[in-house]
Design a protein around this nucleic acid. Structure first.
Length: 723
DNA sequence: TACTATTTAATTTTT
DNA sequence: TTAAATAGTA
């Protein structure tokens, strides 16, 4: 067997990982060290060299995108399509299992997957039903609680209230939520994982079957596994399965949604004799960038320990720009982008990264002014759009009348005279009889309702029944097409004025094309419709379609994970913003922020800019902040500070004239500023003016504050009071 | 029922 | 600031 194609392009460490003996292996793969490549080559190695059947391989990723990429790279490496190789997300694979074994899993055959939006609605409705005050019991908190428990593999009956009445209530709500889901055949994301785990736990034969089948378990982004995902892997591996997991403890940034880096340590305990391979050679960034990243992350405790290196050039120093405010910060970035583009570089090779989405606004405005095309990542995805979810809800009802979540969504959409009061009656009847809304609707229509309301309700029930009947024989796309028209959704959105309505109609038509392009897998034991609905829930689609044009990339540092760009800006490097205020107090939180910063820095291949604003408008309030502590954690030798281009530097107006009304300095005014003048700042307190420079809107003063130290402030923003 | 005024709160996000 | 949710009005 010629192993050259699989091994020739690998370095020693990568090769060691790829050819590791057939026992558990842990690969600690630093940023840009060829993590995916190792997984892909390992799969190829097992299949081609070790002669393992693709059937015996299970590859798990966190996103659909990563799964698709892995499959295509394996196939191109092997030079042939690989069938019967299971590659997917944890959720996708769990879903597959549950569809195959719905009976054993205790689910109805046509169970539906609900996304977090549906889940939240369900919880809100539940609170209404139980007449619980939703300001005391915040739906989001309850959702967080439920998902958190499920992520830990815990059912309500496993939970103890510890005598805490609040907790008891939470558990009770969890319980009620489960009942609703059970009644409607609804499965949320966390439930997919939990059920799949229980399926194996409680069915020895099934488990034995899958253990026999899947000998090799390949796992990507292992540092992001949560408890139930890890438990799922462990139960599948048993004592015979061979896990090959790849991750980077320094890039774990999803603790807040249940991910536990600790699994990396736990793994070595659970699988004694694990081969550990560290990939530390980086093929992405300059030495300067790597050194900075290494120095930063060294401030974290309990790491596996790892030092990225490159045999490439040092590259340029990291540039640090301290802006007056967020506008100035944006202008600075735009200036650099202009240079970049003028030098003939691709806009798409530049990325602006930030901690929170709200920061994109100012940057976007400046980009628009400068006429630089850009693309913001994140935001609503295709299958998450309201009109699409409406259409899907009709389809869900066609598939399953008991789906309360879908029922509530479209019962009066478009409006058909079924108001809040009528729905309320249905809810209480349903609650009293522990039955789905569909049955309740039929029941109250025949006695409790006024004839007008009853007619409206019956009309709705009829529409659904008729649609189900009339489309049963149609193809999926014709079915969708029929539904969006006869449901009245198209007409409803056509009436909506402005461009919004148009877009919504277009999106609905796009849904028909999506259905047309959707190829159902005949091997799956479900109807094409159910399969399409599952697909819609599990794969929410692209955020923005116009990825073609060459444009600057804007995204949060979280969404940048896994990507790389020749030119990167990390904006808003201020304490309070990054690290975020809400994480600053908690050591674990702070470490996670630091890892996020590490992720951000290591996105850059050649040029990295850090920028921060001395003053930033947040929530309509002016905030003054210090440079992020992370900047100080990077050794000076790697950083070059860029000073704002100062044109004139001379003292302004040395003789104080009459103060402006209120004693505060109006924007653009130079009044009252002289060296030695005592001033008071809303946040920094009292201080003395040491220095001034510039004029008009750009005039700045250096103030030595008694408690906050010396600072440069822009006069027109600082709102100093003369003392 | 639909539109408008008022209140409230405000990381990060994939499935 | 602003977006979303809620309350109040036509």
């Amino acid at each position: 067997m010629d192993v050259t194609p699989i091994l020739e392009s690998l370095n020693d460490a990568q090769r060691q990982a790829v050819t590791a003996p057939a026992k558990s292996t842990l690969v600690i793969a630093g940023a840009g060290s060829g993590k995916t490549r190792v997984l892909v080559h390992r799969a190829a190695w097992l299949i081609d060299v070790e002669g393992i059947s693709p059937q015996s391989l299970l590859a798990v990723t966190f996103t659909n995108k990563a799964a698709a990429e892995m499959r295509s790279r394996i196939e191109s490496l092997l030079g042939t399509p690989v069938n019967h190789l299971w590659i997917g997300t944890f959720h996708g694979l769990a879903h597959r299992l549950l569809r195959r074994h719905w009976r054993e899993a205790g689910l109805p055959q046509n169970f539906q997957i609900i996304d977090s939006d549906d889940q939240l609605r369900l919880i809100k409705r539940l609170l209404k039903n139980l007449e619980i005050d939703d300001s005391r019991w915040v739906p989001r908190d309850i959702q967080y609680f439920i998902n958190g428990q499920k992520d830990e593999g815990l059912r309500p009956q496993h939970l103890d209230d510890d005598g805490d009445p609040d907790r008891r209530q939470m558990i009770a709500l969890y319980q009620s939520y489960e009942e609703i889901c059970g009644r409607g055949g609804l499965v949320d994301f966390a439930e997919l994982l939990l059920r799949a785990h229980e399926l194996w736990r409680d069915n020895a034969e099934l488990l034995a079957h899958y253990r026999r089948r899947f000998q090799h378990l390949l796992v990507d982004e292992f540092q992001d596994t949560n408890a139930i995902q890890y438990a799922w892997l462990r139960i599948l591996a048993g004592t015979t399965g061979i896990p090959f997991v790849v991750g980077d403890d320094d890039q774990s940034i999803y603790r807040w949604r249940g991910a536990r880096v600790e699994h990396i340590h736990q793994f070595q305990k659970d699988f004694p004799g694990t081969t550990v391979v560290k990939l530390e050679q980086n093929y992405r960034s300059t030495a300067t960038i790597l050194n900075a990243a290494n120095a930063l992350i060294a401030n974290n405790s309990s790491r596996m320990g790892k030092n990225l290196w490159t045999d490439g050039a040092d590259g340029e120093a990291i540039k640090l720009y301290s802006a007056y405010n967020e506008r100035d910060e944006a202008d600075f970035v735009i200036g650099r982008l202009r240079d970049w583009i003028a030098q003939g570089n691709l806009r798409a090779d530049a990325a602006i990264l930030y901690r929170s989405n709200a920061q994109s606004r100012v940057l976007e405005e400046s980009l628009i002014n400068a006429r630089i095309p850009y693309r913001v990542y994140g935001g609503l995805r295709f299958f998450e759009r309201a009109e699409i979810k409406d259409a899907l809800a009709y389809l869900r009802l066609i598939s399953n009348r008991d789906d309360d979540s879908a029922f509530e969504r479209v019962v009066n959409r478009p409006t058909r005279g079924i108001g809040a009061r009528t729905v309320e009656l249905m809810r209480s009847w349903a609650r009293a009889n522990s039955c789905p809304l569909w049955r309740a609707a039929g029941a109250i229509a025949s006695d409790e309702l006024s004839s007008r309301a009853a007619n409206a309700v019956l009309a709705f029930l009829n529409i659904i029944e008729r649609m189900a009947r009339d489309t049963a024989e149609l193809s999926l796309e014709d079915r969708v097409d029929h539904v969006i028209h006869t449901s009245g959704l198209i007409d409803f959105f056509k009436k909506e004025k402005g461009e919004k309505g148009e877009t919504r109609v277009e999106n609905l038509l796009e849904l028909v094309s999506a259905a047309k392009g959707f190829k159902a897998d005949p091997a799956e034991e479900m109807s094409p419709l159910d399969e399409f609905l599952s697909h819609a829930a599990l794969e929410a689609g692209e955020g923005q379609a116009d990825a073609w044009e060459d444009c600057v990339q804007l995204m949060t540092m979280h969404s940048a994970k896994g990507l790389e760009f020749p030119l990167v800006f990390l904006c808003g490097m201020e304490d309070g913003l990054f690290p975020h205020q809400r994480s600053i107090a908690d050591p674990q939180g702070l470490e996670e922020e630091r890892r996020l910063c590490y992720v951000g820095i290591t996105r850059a291949k050649q040029y990295l800019y850090l920028t921060y604003a001395e003053q930033r408008r947040l929530h309509g309030m002016d905030n003054y902040s210090q440079a992020s502590r992370f900047i100080a954690e990077i050794p000076d030798e790697y950083i070059e500070e860029i000073r704002p281009r100062v044109q004139v530097s001379r003292p302004v107006q040395t003789t104080p004239r009459r103060r402006p009304s209120g004693g505060s300095l109006a924007p653009g005014s130079d009044m009252g500023i002289r060296l030695g003048q005592r001033v008071r700042h809303i946040k920094f307190g009292d201080g003395v003016i040491l220095n001034c420079e510039g004029q008009g809107a750009h005039a700045r003063v250096e103030v030595n504050f008694e408690t906050a130290g010396t600072k440069w402030l822009v006069l027109s923003y600082a709102n100093l009071d003369l003392m």
